[in-house]
Design a protein around this nucleic acid. Structure first.
Length: 109
DNA sequence: GCAATGACTGGTA
DNA sequence: TTACCAGCCATTG
């Protein structure tokens, strides 16, 4: 893949993430599917590398689990934005996940 | 060019 | 419910 292609892909992903409204989330797979280029692993890599400028915490796995390395930080944002969560007690990171049924969002909406 | 790696996913146990 | 396995795709050594 050429550098230009990669940058364009990164830009598409980032702009899409920026469009996710507060309190909503999207899965890696959904983003990859919408961008229509390569798979979800690429999306994760993009966010890990260039996701510093976008609300990356609004991107989760399809089952609602948070990125293993940043779940604590993401939880803080969810609490502030009022994102629908499900699972254990409030304030207990443990197995807390996003309630995809209520928080899932798509650019087509 | 090949092997390993990763913020993934879906199916099976 | 969690755990493990086999695909998947681009980057990296």
């Amino acid at each position: 893949m050429d550098t230009e292609e990669r940058e364009r892909y990164v830009e598409d992903v980032l702009s899409l993430v920026e469009r996710i409204p507060p309190g909503r989330v999207m899965s890696y797979g959904a983003i990859a599917d919408h961008v229509g280029r390569c798979g979800p692993r690429r999306v994760g890599n993009v966010l890990a590398t260039d996701g510093g400028g976008v609300p990356w915490w609004r991107v989760v796995r399809t089952d609602g689990s948070l990125p293993p390395s940043h779940e604590r930080r993401a939880l803080e944002h969810y609490r502030v934005e009022g994102t629908a969560l499900r699972g254990r007690a409030v304030g207990d990171a443990g197995a807390t996940r996003v309630d995809m049924a209520r928080a899932a969002w798509s650019p087509a909406s």
